[in-house]
Simulated assay, not measured.
Amino acid sequence: MIAFSATLACQYDTPFSPFPAAQFGHGLAWLSASGFDAAELCINDYEGVEVAAIRQALDRAGLGCTTIATGQARKRDGLTLLSADKSVVRRTQARLFEHIDAAAQLGSHVTIGSLRATDLPLDKGQYMSELAAALFPCVEYARRNGVVLILEALNRYEVCQLHSAQEMMAYLAFSDAPENVGVLWDLFHASIEDADYAQAIATLGPRLRHVHLADSNRGFPGYGHLPLEEVYTALRLAGYQGAVSLECLCRPSAQTVIDGAGELVARLRRL
């Protein structure tokens, strides 16, 4: 069964949440009332963040947690797994260890997207080698703690390498990634990088562990030109058992997202 979640900010505001972090409780109530199963939590660091309290708030709302989104640390703290400054790499790994600890408590995955962005002039082979080496201790730590790390396929305008479903699978094979490493497939990025959605889903196979919903303009589904129902049907027919998570910019407005989410979830569940 496919679960539904949506991004919420619980520490610092993010353009992907229709509620500011200060209204985290309102966001949980919205998810519950709109028929979602879980939240996708945007967490930068754990200064002042009580994971046990978040777990309790989720439980009260009848919600789970699908993944912890980690990308804020790229812009806020300059973290990346791919840096000429090895102290930056070590700090990024340490931050990911904290995310893994939180995910173990929340029963969630940990997303690695923007934390693999780099300004280094790396070709594909160099990029994959550097990323595999930097990720290795994180992958092992996650494996020991029963946590899945999901690497997000990002478009060519955001990162220099690993954009498509096929390229993500090539990286997993290159790095001999264990089963606790999967792929996050985002429809916005896929609209740029994957010519055939059904083929991309088939290529990822069981490594597909999480899906982001957004339209071609990264706005709320229905305000661009992506065939959302066709993609969701392809996921269902492929036997996908992970979550689909609303991670879109609040376009045309936050209120549009708030008001339309329940109908979107209900419509997809009927397919």
Rank of each mutant, 00 (worst) to 15 (best):
C42V: 15
A173N: 12
E152F: 03
T67N: 15
L228P: 01
Y46H: 09
A200T: 08
C250T: 11
H26Q: 12
H26L: 08
A94H: 04
C10M: 14
A22L: 11
P15A: 12
E152S: 03
V147F: 07
A38S: 12
E229N: 09
Q241Y: 05
E158F: 08
V183H: 10
V231K: 01
A214V: 12
N145Y: 14
V211G: 03
G64M: 04
L208P: 02
A84C: 10
Q23I: 05
T7M: 10
V183K: 04
I68D: 02
R251C: 13
V110A: 11
L96Y: 02
C10Y: 03
A39Y: 02
N145M: 09
H225S: 14
D101I: 09
D37E: 10
L187R: 00
C250S: 08
V148P: 00
G25S: 15
E50G: 15
G78W: 14
S108E: 07
A84Q: 11
A173Q: 15
W30M: 02
E158I: 12
A195D: 09
A173R: 15
P20C: 04
M128I: 10
P227W: 11
G78P: 13
S191C: 13
E40C: 10
A21Y: 06
G239C: 08
A73P: 06
V181A: 09
A200Q: 04
T233W: 11
W185I: 01
T92F: 01
Y223F: 11
I2M: 10
C248A: 11
G224Y: 03
A238Q: 05
L151T: 00
L271V: 15
F174W: 12
A266G: 09
I100Q: 03
Q161E: 06
V49H: 08
S34W: 02
F174C: 04
Y157I: 08
S216F: 07
P15S: 09
Y157H: 10
P178S: 00
Y232V: 07
A170R: 06
Y157G: 08
R60M: 14
D196E: 11
S83I: 15
R90W: 10
A73W: 03
T111P: 03
A29W: 03
G113T: 01
I150A: 13
F97V: 13
Q126V: 10
D77T: 15
R76M: 13
A238R: 07
D194F: 02
A195V: 04
L162W: 04
T92L: 07
L82W: 06
T118K: 05
Q105V: 14
G146R: 12
A177G: 06
R144F: 07
R55Y: 10
R236W: 07
Q105C: 12
